[in-house]
């Protein structure tokens, strides 16, 4: 699940946080628009809700999400600061603040916000996951891996394990040459989300590293048929080019090379 899909999912739950407030009904309308990806309508409604109740924390977090959708991380941080001034223990606002910082490459800030979010909601796998991602990107892979493992554990405890939580950890395990553990996580991810191209792609990469090009090619070809995920067609074609080369099928490799070049030309 991408960060934005997570936000949309969380938006449903966030409405419950809006206690009785003069702005509650308008906020709920804003939230419905957000879930429907009607961002302009959502923004208008959230501003209206905040006029009715400037301290309505769910409306402030929704405003932050809208700002993040428009790449205005400065405005998102501003709204979240207001939310946290009203309720310093608002774990979701802390989490979102961390996300705004993470998306804006402000890693020091992101670390501190995700850590605080973890303290406020220790059973929330999202905070653990994003703290892991941030920790990995600041160069502490061992700590990051422990956090990925914690995120997976917390998610399993909810009874709703997800491929999106398994994949970043599996990738790090692969980079750390912990091939068997990575494969275990990747196969779980494929089982949980059989239509997610990212899971098949990463499994294909692992299989290629394990000198199993035929199976890698099969997984890669499967990934190419799927649309759900963020891995690009180009990345999959590049993988397939090498997998088919190593599997002794230069003709099939050549097809992927030609497709990659066509994609490059189209991009220009």
């Amino acid at each position: 699940m991408t960060p934005w899909k997570r936000c949309l999912a969380i938006a449903f739950a966030a409405s419950a946080l809006a206690a009785e407030s003069p702005g509650k009904a308008v906020y709920e309308r804003a939230n419905r628009h957000f879930v429907a990806k009607q961002f302009n309508e959502s923004l208008a409604a959230v501003e209206e809700a905040l006029l009715l109740d400037a301290k309505l924390v769910p409306a402030l977090t929704l405003k932050a999400k809208l700002a993040m959708a428009a790449n205005r991380y400065d405005l998102a941080s501003e709204a979240l600061e207001r939310a946290l001034a009203v309720d310093p223990k608002a774990a979701y606002a802390q989490f979102l603040y961390g996300m705004a910082a993470y998306m804006n490459n402000e890693m020091k800030e992101a670390l501190s916000r995700f850590r605080r979010a973890r303290e406020l909601a220790p059973k929330d796998p999202r905070a653990a996951l994003y703290l892991a991602l941030t920790t990995e990107s600041v160069g502490a892979p061992s700590d990051a891996l422990a956090l990925y493992q914690e995120a997976v554990r917390l998610e399993r405890a909810t009874g709703k394990p997800s491929a999106d939580t398994l994949l970043p950890g599996a990738r790090l395990l692969l980079l750390l040459d912990r091939i068997d553990e990575s494969e275990d996580w990747l196969r779980q991810a494929v089982k949980l989300a059989p239509n997610l191209r990212d899971a098949h792609f990463d499994l294909a990469r692992l299989l290629l590293k394990k000198a199993n090009p035929a199976e890698a090619a099969a997984e890669g070809e499967r990934a190419l048929t799927l649309s759900d995920g963020v891995i690009t067609d180009s990345a999959i074609h590049y993988l397939l080019l090498r997998a088919w080369q190593q599997a002794g099928s230069p003709e099939r490799a050549a097809v992927h090379a030609a497709t990659l070049r066509a994609l490059e030309s189209a991009k220009r």
Binding site: R171, I231, S234, A235, I236, L241, R242, Q245, A253, A257
Partner: peptide
């Protein structure tokens, strides 16, 4: 570059 495997990082990036 593509055929020789030096065009991109291992993950296609």
């Amino acid at each position: 570059g593509l055929e020789a495997g030096v065009a991109l990082r291992d993950d296609g990036h």
